[in-house]
Write a protein that binds this DNA or RNA. Structure first.
Lengths: 162, 162
DNA sequence: GGTCAATGGTTGATGATGTCAATTGTTTAT
DNA sequence: ATAAACAATTGACATCATCAACCATTGACC
């Protein structure tokens, strides 16, 4: 449970951008664009635990549910995705299984492997989580339509050629 | 230490976009754009622990160093920033202080408050960390110049009007 | 002044997350 | 057939997170 800390109180609210900000300097174009995106990213990252907590999930659990969307996944593949040790996944899945959100199924082809699948309850929770996650943050929602369309097209191109 | 898990091995590399993907459907423009950005953000989030580990920092420690850049910060303010409990910050700072990266300084105005400042070593490490963080990821680096410029302008506008 | 609530930080108990090293069972290669 | 590689688990241990309780200090109010 990583709830918001009861309000801003007297928090100073400093500007997020640093003085040595590549986006304002003479650096290369990639650095300029990236630094700006980076702000958005970190703002979003800060909210992620609280957002996951809305569903009684830890950040990692939310991540797992997200990845587990489309079909079965071997535990080792999941470990790879999370960039963490395989032994870590064991306990992680133990807890999710105890809550009835996922199931281990032994693979037929390779009896060492255990495939993870969402239970019905897990799929339902994932649906609500994803709906909440894909709600655009204020910064995006406030953009004019041309900017949104341009942004979408740029990202589509980038993800496609990657 | 969250090192990369020794390479992709036979990892399947599924398409990141789901079938129920708002970016491909008839949803609103904000959702379409956001869903695509979301992919980028989560890819980056996945790498963050490994990136912090390059400097022998945990993800949270890296976050703290990032925030501690420009001047002293009260511990409670830091707790607010991290959206975590104040008691958590105690241990966090304990470890950073033990490594000689930050210092606690009692405030003159209010003797309850302890201000955090980077040591020289801390500032040096932060510099290297920030340089590494602001290096654009491959997806950005590979974009054509017009897209980069457009992206930068869009983000500038968005951050300004927000 | 003197009391009392609020605040900032620490401590202790507990659970989740992460690592590494070692183990078991099952492929796969030689 | 033996050996090497691999998938998952276990156990020991550090970190990160919560909450409840505590101490010292501050500020408000009578």
């Amino acid at each position: 449970m990583n709830g918001f800390n009861d309000g801003p109180s007297e928090q100073v609210m400093r500007r997020p951008a640093s003085p040595s900000d590549p986006a304002e300097s003479e650096s290369g174009l990639p650095a300029q664009a990236w630094t700006l995106l980076f702000e958005l990213l970190h703002t979003h990252m800060r909210n992620f635990p609280a957002l996951a907590a809305e569903f009684d999930l830890s950040p990692v659990q939310a991540h797992v549910l997200r990845q587990l969307g489309e079909g079965a996944l071997a535990m080792s593949t999941l470990a790879n995705y999370l960039s963490c040790d395989a032994s870590n996944v064991t306990g992680l899945v133990d807890r999710l299984e105890a809550r009835g959100l996922v199931e281990r199924k032994s693979s037929e082809q390779d009896r060492r492997v255990k495939m993870l699948v969402l239970t019905e309850a897990g799929a339902e929770l994932r649906g609500r989580l994803m709906a909440r996650l894909s709600a655009p943050p204020p910064l995006i929602a406030a953009m004019p339509d041309e900017d949104l369309a341009a942004l979408r097209d740029i990202m589509r191109r980038a993800l496609k050629t990657q």
